[in-house]
Amino acid sequence: MELNQDTLTYEADPLECVEQAVIAEQYAYERDDTELHIAVPGAWRDHQIWFAWRPELDALHICGSLELKVPEKRFREACELVNRLNERLYLGHFEVWSEDGSVIFRHALAVPGGEGISPAAAAGLIGAAKEAGERLYPAFQYLIWGGKSVSESVSAAMFDTAGEA
Results as ranks from 00 to 15, higher is better:
74 R>C: 00
100 D>G: 09
154 V>E: 01
80 E>S: 11
120 A>I: 11
84 R>S: 04
145 W>M: 07
42 G>M: 07
42 G>S: 03
90 Y>P: 03
49 I>V: 15
113 G>A: 10
153 S>T: 06
93 H>V: 00
139 A>V: 03
60 L>M: 04
122 A>C: 12
144 I>H: 13
125 L>M: 15
2 E>V: 12
134 E>V: 01
134 E>A: 05
76 R>A: 06
63 C>A: 04
144 I>G: 09
117 I>E: 02
68 L>T: 02
25 E>N: 14
66 L>G: 00
37 H>K: 15
80 E>H: 08
98 S>I: 15
12 A>P: 07
20 Q>K: 11
43 A>L: 02
84 R>K: 14
128 A>I: 01
36 L>V: 12
132 A>Y: 10
19 E>G: 05
105 F>D: 04
103 V>S: 06
118 S>A: 13
98 S>Q: 12
110 A>Q: 10
2 E>A: 15
15 L>G: 11
138 P>C: 03
131 E>Q: 13
58 D>A: 10
92 G>A: 04
16 E>C: 07
143 L>I: 01
55 P>A: 11
111 V>S: 06
77 E>S: 12
87 E>H: 15
46 D>K: 15
65 S>H: 06
96 V>F: 00
155 S>G: 11
102 S>Y: 07
142 Y>I: 02
1 M>N: 13
134 E>F: 07
76 R>F: 01
156 A>P: 07
151 S>W: 06
71 P>D: 01
35 E>M: 11
13 D>Q: 10
55 P>K: 05
93 H>P: 06
36 L>F: 11
79 C>T: 11
156 A>C: 05
146 G>T: 09
95 E>Y: 06
91 L>W: 15
54 R>S: 04
129 A>E: 00
68 L>R: 08
3 L>E: 08
99 E>V: 12
84 R>F: 00
123 A>T: 10
73 K>N: 08
17 C>N: 15
148 K>P: 02
124 G>V: 07
44 W>F: 15
52 A>E: 12
128 A>N: 10
106 R>G: 08
138 P>K: 02
121 A>Q: 13
44 W>E: 05
8 L>F: 03
128 A>V: 02
79 C>Q: 09
